[in-house]
Design a binder for these strands. Structure first.
Length: 271
DNA sequence: CGCCAGGCCTGCACGC
DNA sequence: TGCGTGCAGGCCTGGC
């Protein structure tokens, strides 16, 4: 379940292997991801050089001179670097074969992910054009969050998970950040005061930074093993801890549904 | 067997 | 009219 830290870790893992490499081939085994993988991708990329790699929200952007490969891991996707000739398994849908004897392989059992191609300025792509600021940027500060939530009557948790407001805050980190900020997930966004917006921004940055740091420490494992190794084992204060004792006050953690998603909170620590 | 998890786009209804 | 907002549905598989 890649959230932003996992995507960032993936970027750091694959970047050194792809940077300045020539694509020798593209293999599409199953084009039926969230959107179809473009059929002409092999033709488009063969013989072309990877110029740079970036992340925007949870999208990985692989830039070539003539366009950008856009990758999204959806909810079950992972990328690995493997030697040429490594046999593909059941859910290995896409390979980028490189001139250095390696290949980058996308595995995605649930196929919520995406592999797309865009010519021209990638920031103008429909999927990227309306995205809010990066959570770790200076642009995402308490003033921004306060202003952006004034007209929002919806719950604060739904607001921080809205990619038009801020990108990259998935369900787990939304829950954890709200706990750290002492805010109930169901509180209306426009009722969150300035000081609490400040705490929330700090908490979001904190949980994401910690997770990225953790990811970095197991980067080698991540790249060479099954893509789901220990880099995600942050200790959670509330996520998935229904009825368990709050780590701060021992009150049982509550579980509710918001927007068809699970929310967890401590009724004592979060108001 | 049924249900749930996850990201997030899409479509619809609503109010200003 | 058009926009922002809010909400539900859908995609898909593995694990319980």
């Amino acid at each position: 379940m890649p959230e932003l830290p996992e995507v960032e870790t993936t970027l750091r893992g694959i970047a050194p292997h792809l940077q300045d490499q020539i694509v020798s081939d593209v293999v599409i085994r199953n084009a039926n991801l969230r959107w179809p993988i473009p059929k002409d991708l092999p033709k488009l990329l063969r013989g072309r050089t990877v110029r740079s790699l970036q992340r925007r929200a949870k999208y990985l952007l692989v830039a070539f001179d003539h366009g950008t490969l856009i990758l999204h891991l959806g909810m079950s996707g992972s990328l690995r670097i493997l030697p040429h000739g490594t046999s593909a398994e059941k859910h290995d849908h896409f390979d980028l074969v490189l001139g250095n004897g390696e290949l980058m392989r996308l595995r995605d059992p649930r196929r919520f992910g995406a592999v797309l191609w865009h010519e021209g300025d990638v920031a103008e792509h429909v999927l990227l054009a309306h995205l809010g600021p990066e959570p770790l940027s200076v642009e995402f500060d308490s003033k921004y969050l306060y202003d952006a939530t004034r007209k929002r009557n919806a719950a604060i948790k739904l607001a921080i998970m809205d990619s038009q407001l801020v990108v990259g805050v998935g369900n787990i980190y939304a829950n954890e950040a709200l706990f750290r900020a002492g805010i109930r997930p169901q509180l209306a966004a426009n009722k969150v005061s300035r000081p609490r917006c400040k705490r929330l921004v700090q908490a979001i940055k904190e949980v994401l930074r910690e997770a990225i740091k953790q990811g970095g420490s197991s980067l080698r494992d991540f790249i060479h093993s099954d893509g789901s190794s220990g880099y995600f084992q942050q200790h959670y204060f509330v996520y998935g801890r229904k009825d368990e004792a709050c780590k701060q006050c021992r009150t049982p953690i509550k579980h509710i549904k918001q927007g068809q998603r699970s929310s967890f909170y401590c009724p004592q620590c979060q108001k």
